[in-house]
Amino acid sequence: MRILVTGGSGMLGSELLRQISGAGHVGVSLDRVGFLAADKIQRKSMLDGFDVVIHAAANTNVEQCEIEPEICYFDNVFLTEKLFNYSQINKNRFVYISSTGVYGRGSSVPYHEYDVPQPTTVHHHSKLLSEKVVLASPSSLVIRTGWLFGGALSNKKNFINNRINEIRAAADFISANYMQVGSPTYVGDCAHRILELISADNAGIYNVVNEGAASRFEYVKRIVELSGAAIEVRPIDASAFNRRADVSENEAAVSYRTKFDGLSPLRPWQDALDDYMSQVGLRSCLSQ
């Protein structure tokens, strides 16, 4: 297969390109700036010759999206519309990376694919709008994931490494939100499952997350434990962050559809976290 990936320098996009190549396929990163600057003929040419387009690029700054919604809708919806339209002209299969945050606030248990989305932020509303665009094609695949971790330590959005740096800078304790719950998901496992779904010609909406749910507090506490740091993690509530975006307290998910397809769930997030921290040298890195 020849697969075109947007957001190729991002955490998920770069991992997808690595695994695409490792599986013997051809993966190419699409230049967003070049695509937007191109004319119609050039845009069509950029998508020509590919079997699949994976749209992993997005404006993920949830707070900034509330302040500048026009930029958010341009980045997350308008660009998706353009890419999808040209993919249809070229008969590329389209894969859209969405978020478990689109489910919004309506349940205290993990969401499944048949729950009704009720996004509470501009960012998540933009993601849901884009889902509706691409699902106009019966062959499109929508991946809802969230709380991704992994990737290069140099990535500014590397959640694990940022927590390690926070621990190093702290005097006696660090704090984490005990109210918000999600499904921490290793980017390597996520990318592998996405490619599995593509290879099996699956279509529609799939939640792709590691098994299990955790609060931010539980998640950070586990990172501290694995790092070997002798520091306290204190639980705080959401009000301490004074966020503009009305982010749901529950972004945890399970996948009914992969179960119905006979696929095993992804491994527990704790196991994936342990493996990742070991791979990049962060496990026991702060042991005394």
Rank of each mutant, 00 (worst) to 15 (best):
S139T: 15
K157I: 15
A152P: 14
N85T: 06
N92H: 13
T80Y: 10
K82V: 06
S87V: 06
L135Q: 03
N158A: 14
L141C: 02
K82H: 12
V122Y: 05
Y111D: 00
R105W: 07
H123C: 07
V62M: 01
K157E: 05
N76H: 10
S154H: 14
F173P: 03
E166K: 15
K157A: 11
I160L: 05
T185S: 13
T121H: 05
S99A: 14
D172S: 10
I160Y: 02
A152R: 15
S139Q: 11
N162C: 09
N85Q: 02
V133Q: 04
V134I: 13
F94V: 14
Y114K: 11
N158E: 10
S98F: 07
D172I: 15
L128R: 04
S126P: 10
K132R: 07
S140M: 10
G104W: 02
S98V: 15
P69G: 07
S126W: 02
S87F: 03
F84S: 04
T120K: 06
H192C: 05
E131M: 12
I67M: 04
V109P: 02
E166A: 14
Q118E: 03
Y103N: 06
L83F: 06
N92Q: 13
Y114I: 08
K157L: 07
S108P: 11
I143P: 01
T121L: 03
F159R: 12
H192Y: 05
G146V: 14
V122D: 03
F94G: 02
A176G: 12
P119K: 02
I97K: 01
E68V: 14
V102W: 00
V77D: 01
L135G: 04
I194R: 00
